[in-house]
């Protein structure tokens, strides 16, 4: 009896072609996803740096001090001056909310997941008594898919 069908070699070749097509398609999906997450983290980091820069403007000049690398972890610094307390919808101190697992669980999880930290590098420039400038580098660092990421910006704050 002559039976016509597919040989094992033909099936293997067909499967190999199918896999060769599927793998790039899969990686295309995951690559676009990684790009979106990368973009989100980068935007978030830029927002954090802007927030720090704006708070520096309102801080007493002498309180602007160095925060050395590796920096302060946002999820683990409840007494940090730039981010805590973060909101308070009540009319007294009792209602303040900080970036902690109990007060802001979603935000805290996000910060833990990406290990967002900030560091400040402060240089003093003096033009005479009472006339100084602080040159401040704001560094935001985070982890993304096992890689260390960094966002840096620079501000100047005057004593006058």
């Amino acid at each position: 009896m002559i039976r016509r069908g597919l040989s094992l070699t033909e099936i293997i070749i067909a499967l190999a072609i199918a896999v060769m097509v599927m793998v790039p398609v899969t990686s295309m999906f995951s690559t676009s996803g990684q790009q979106v997450q990368k973009s989100r983290n980068f935007s978030f980091a830029a927002g954090l740096a802007r927030r720090i820069s704006q708070h520096l403007m309102a801080m007493p000049f002498e309180n602007i001090v160095e925060v050395p690398l590796p920096g302060l972890a946002l999820h683990d610094s409840p007494d940090d001056v730039f981010f805590n307390p973060i909101v308070n919808f009540s009319a007294s101190q009792s209602g303040v909310k900080k970036i902690t697992a109990s007060d802001m669980p979603a935000l805290h999880d996000f910060l833990v997941q990406n290990d967002f930290k900030y560091a400040l590098s402060v240089s003093n420039v003096s033009f005479g008594a009472g006339d100084e400038i602080k040159s401040i580098s704001i560094l935001i660092t985070w982890k993304e898919a096992g890689r260390n990421m960094i966002y840096r910006t620079h501000v100047y704050v005057s004593s006058v």
């Binding site: 978030f44 802007r50 704006q54």
Partner: peptide, 21 residues
């Protein structure tokens, strides 16, 4: 001094933390 305002925004689980002086 009423010059610094923080803006917390949340959209579908994504958060934005801004401040304006």
């Amino acid at each position: 001094g009423n010059r610094l305002i923080g803006i917390y925004l949340e959209s579908s689980g994504t958060v934005g933390l801004e401040s304006v002086y």
